[in-house]
Write a protein that binds this DNA or RNA. Sequence first.
DNA 1: GTAAAATGTCAAGGCTTTTTCACGATTTTT
DNA 2: AAAAATCGTGAAAAAGCCTTGACATTTTAC
Lengths: 220, 220
Amino acid sequence: MIDILIVEDNKELAGLLCDFLRAENYTVSIADTGEKALSLYEKYGAKLIVLDIMLPGMDGFAVCRKIRKESNTPILIVSAKTEKEDKLSGLILGADDYIEKPYDIDILLAKIGGIFKRRYAIDEITDGCLRVNKVSQAVYKNDCPVEMTAKEFDLLVLLMENQGKTLNKDYIFNQIWGSDSLSEQQTLTVHIKWLRQKIEDDPKNPKKIQTVWGVGYKYI
Amino acid sequence: MIDILIVEDNKELAGLLCDFLRAENYTVSIADTGEKALSLYEKYGAKLIVLDIMLPGMDGFAVCRKIRKESNTPILIVSAKTEKEDKLSGLILGADDYIEKPYDIDILLAKIGGIFKRRYAIDEITDGCLRVNKVSQAVYKNDCPVEMTAKEFDLLVLLMENQGKTLNKDYIFNQIWGSDSLSEQQTLTVHIKWLRQKIEDDPKNPKKIQTVWGVGYKYI
DNA sequence: GTAAAATGTCAAGGCTTTTTCACGATTTTT
DNA sequence: AAAAATCGTGAAAAAGCCTTGACATTTTAC
């Protein structure tokens, strides 16, 4: 999977942009026609497509439509045309952002950074040295992977998504085990214990998962 | 969690937009000041914020910055100003899209639809009557939940993400079990069997998970 | 058509996760 | 300060998941 696919027939401009992006640690590929772009995308996939509208042969709009048919990959449209119609039809068509040529490279980089952040950081919950990815179900403490069982993971996500809020035990139990569960609430305290052992620096003196007496727990 | 939070001090306009959105089955709340918007957002959360820049008191940019500090919730900025600076600073700041007042309500609805689709459909893989959500780890067949074990789920996602492609058994095995696994490849065929029993209409005549003799499997 | 190779099936077992239970420790109430 | 309520802990039982091996079935090659 490529990070960024640049679709641009001006090789000099594409090369320049490519250098800048690689300097920011993105992996980049360049296609100078719409057809090549689609074939590269088919083969390797991409996290973001920077798409020039004016291309020889198949134009950018056609590329955008084709890609939109099969995926939600973010597309940033680049165009020399200034007509409003183009901008709107591009965005409605499914592009995530739009920039006019000639553009300031810093602004383009900022837009790309923004798209990446909004699009690919959304499934991560972060708090200090703790990082939880809801898609890959992975937990990292100081960037070291922490093994979690399913129940522990669900419990951690619930607590972290309500950081600072006290969740009462009935609520937690219903969220994780379901209201029709036959298990006992004692089960919850055992899972809290294991979670503390995995994420607290000193499990005997929990700083992150705090007990709220008579109520429940909260993540701080 | 609210679907859409409208931040707009013109109550008539906000009400109108609200009606249109509710007609499309979104849940909607309205805030007429930036402060109220932030407090509503704190309390309930929102999937998308439609944010007018010109507000009494705290302006839209300030609201946008505050929300961006703590989350990646999509923001659609609405503004009467036409200066280019505003547009750009709003977008770079982290907004997902931009529309100028007075706007055509259909265009706004299209933009909102686009944001929702790009932002919230990305973790779902759909194929015909089968729907897989990678975040909640849930699988639905004809909208009925199908229970999956972890290995079955991973295997299904791998196959579906490579729909139409034949994956050879070594590849599948390395992806799911890891290259240093001591398990035998026989394990894979057993999991394939279970997966077929859960997602195929007739598990004895699999239509979706096909065997490619001497190579591996593919999802069609 | 037959033998060889590859895949499918089933049930048993082993392993991990989850739950339960009993008891000890801590906090709150009286 | 004692009693009551609540929470924490460790071990063991229960449940669920994964793997394995033996054998059946299907496909391919000769």
